[in-house]
Amino acid sequence: MKNPEQEQSKKNEILAGPPPSVLNLGYDLNLSVRIGSLIMPNPVGVASGTFGYGEEYDELVHIDALGALYTKAVTLEPREGNPPPRLVETPMGLINSIGLANPGVEKFLREKLPSLRTRLCPIIVNVAGSTEDDYIQVIERIEAHLASTDSGRPGIDGYEINVSCPNVQKGGMSFGIDPRLVERLTHSLRQKTSRPLIIKLSPNVTDIAEIARAAEAGGADAISCINTVVGMVIDTEKKKPAIAMGTGGLSGPAIRPIGVAATYKVGKAVRIPVIGLGGITNASDAIQYLLAGALAVQVGTALFSDPRAPLKVLDGIIEWMKRHSVHSVSDIRFMLR
């Protein structure tokens, strides 16, 4: 019998090693970050919903070099998503209303997991649902599947719980605005998995710190902050909204200051790590999040202008660390003056 914890720590040792580009620097840089029991080799991941399940970007991005791959949301049942148009570009931003289109957990395990298992970077599965039971069943199903496949990499190193999608009629968002629901949901999911549990929060709330504390109390290993900001564009000639659903989620550089402020607030409110995202396009953007209190970051919408953005961000962080004589990336969050 294999001991899953031993397996995990052995894998973490491998993952914790510096990526190839850092080996020749002659510097003693520690880029790895710890989220619960997982050690990510570097702090730069790709955000859920912008990177599919990885395969789509295989020919364009050196995926193994990423700090983490956060998958497109997985729900219990398949979802077709919302009618088009689903996208509209705004000044330095993008509004989307995809509606969590995904193949559902069964098809995910059958068709998407095999390629995820071949990745060398940590894989975080983003989970969404309409009811508490939906979330529980997705994680139960995934854990049962992983327990029944005994060899090789699990292909799933943690979960990011989407309690903040603004684009589904029911659920998602309704969890994310109520601290009691967030705590209860986190607590329930905590019973189902020992893998890292990351709660992804919405900025569309009165006090994001309160929700973050609730997730921490429920047993979360980390907080992702932020999901998209509710937004709307109206076509003045057609006199109707630019996207079919009317409102959608705004992402991109337009929301970066909102995300940095939210990270700053949440970072002060909880002891668990914060993963910052929202409008990160270059290293300076990412370092703002790290200085605001984030341990790691995610790059999302910037992929749509340049698929190389995440690894450029990582290179820029390394360059900044050298210039500022910072040896461990996890120290940056304590450096804000």
Binding site: G49, T50, L60, R86, N96, A101
Partner: peptide, 22 residues
């Protein structure tokens, strides 16, 4: 269609399929 990623990842540029779905 309006497009974001261009490689199939974001599901932004869909059209309604005749058989349902997108």
């Amino acid at each position: 269609q309006w497009m974001a990623c261009g490689v199939g990842a974001c599901h932004g540029c869909v059209l309604p399929a005749a058989s349902g779905g997108f």
